[in-house]
């Protein structure tokens, strides 16, 4: 699975430009599915038939990542851009990016520190003060490689490092994609619809229409979540910790998960020796926010991989946690019958 995560993370797929991720996933999973289709928004909806078709189980994992879009090319050939999804501009200066299908290399730059006035030095740099340098000599030169509207991704290669850690761009949420691909290898009690969704980072948009189409009886979102278990943070604000296992959501800004459902995951995960922790914060939101309010309502839960430095050029996670996320998701799928009984 780590090999697959590496390949997925290195693909560029900013919200609205998920084509290459979609193509990669479809190629890999087609032999595993009973039906596969791409909807009008670009969501991939893969069906794995179950022992019974009485109920529909939905898994949602988003394919898109945060990034940027080219908004203007200056006379001197520098690229102005706007962010796609929530990115803290303080992490941007001097970072390497790739632009468009040709993967043109660029560096995000700003004016030299000795030329900045006091307020510029003290304040976080605003996105509109930054430009990307692609090594073009002029606007005309830049236009040979770049067009307005080209997407921009961080140019970070996936790597394993340290004692069982991984780093890369787009772990959010290619890890979820990889886990879902793995889950498609087995058959479960009910029909399983795995939805690889688009445009989560800009407002859960793909999941909104995917859930409307699937009309699931119960749904699971596999995601990443912020781990702030780093120096300078009080313990009560860690949210989740790396190497403490899969994170189960109780409540975030978009969803209150049914208590019985969250408790089932937490208790049974730990009982089966799968490291499971609660997400100790109500911040953030994911596809569950859209799915649980679809039509007449859908019982929806979320399992997340703890990640440090989310929405930055480099996200860090632990391999053991990836495995816990997979194991806990699998446990959920193997027990949907009894889970739905509890929910009644």
């Amino acid at each position: 699975m780590i090999k697959n995560i590496e390949k997925l993370c290195n693909i560029c797929g900013v919200s609205g430009d998920e084509d290459k991720v979609r193509e990669y996933i479809i190629n890999k999973i087609t032999p595993l599915c009973d039906d596969i289709r791409t909807d009008s928004m670009g969501n991939v909806i893969a069906l794995k038939k179950g022992a019974s078709s009485d109920k529909k189980i939905m898994i949602a994992v988003h394919m898109d990542e945060v990034g940027f879009i080219v908004s203007e090319i200056t006379d001197k050939g520098f690229i102005k851009f706007q962010s796609v999804g929530g990115i803290d501009p303080r992490v941007l200066v001097s970072k390497r990016v790739v632009i468009g299908d040709k993967r043109i290399k660029g560096v995000i730059g700003m004016k030299a520190v000795h030329l900045q006035n006091k307020s510029e030095r003290e304040k976080a740099v605003a996105e509109n003060k930054l430009t990307i340098d692609i090594g073009a000599k002029s606007k005309k030169d830049a236009l040979k490689w770049i067009e307005i509207g080209d997407y921009i991704s961080f140019a970070t290669e996936f790597e394993q490092f340290g004692n069982g850690f991984i780093k890369g761009k787009a772990l959010d949420n290619r890890v979820g994609c990889a886990v879902a691909m793995e889950l498609l290898k087995e058959r479960y009690d009910y029909d399983l619809y795995v939805c690889f969704t688009v445009q989560e980072e800009i407002g859960l948009r793909g999941a909104t229409v995917a859930a409307y189409a699937v009309e699931p009886d119960i749904a699971l979102v596999i995601e990443t979540t912020t781990a702030s278990d780093v120096s300078g943070t009080d313990e009560h604000q860690y949210v989740v910790r790396l190497n403490h296992g899969a994170a189960v959501t109780l409540m975030d800004s978009r969803t209150i998960v049914d208590k019985r459902l969250a408790a089932w995951l937490y208790e049974n995960g730990n009982k089966k020796g799968i490291k499971t922790q609660y997400k100790e914060s109500n911040a953030g939101g994911n596809d569950a926010g859209a799915i649980h309010l679809s039509k007449e309502g859908v019982k929806t839960c979320a399992i997340s991989l703890p990640c440090r430095y989310l929405h930055s050029p480099v996200t860090v996670a632990a391999k053991d946690d990836v495995n816990s996320v997979y194991e806990l998701s699998r446990l959920f799928l193997q027990n949907t019958k009894s889970i739905m009984k509890i929910m009644r």
Binding site: R254, I256, H292, L293, K295, E296, G297
Partner: peptide, 12 residues
Amino acid sequence: VGLRGARTSAYK
């Protein structure tokens, strides 16, 4: 937390 129950019950 955001008019959530009203949304699904109105749909129904």
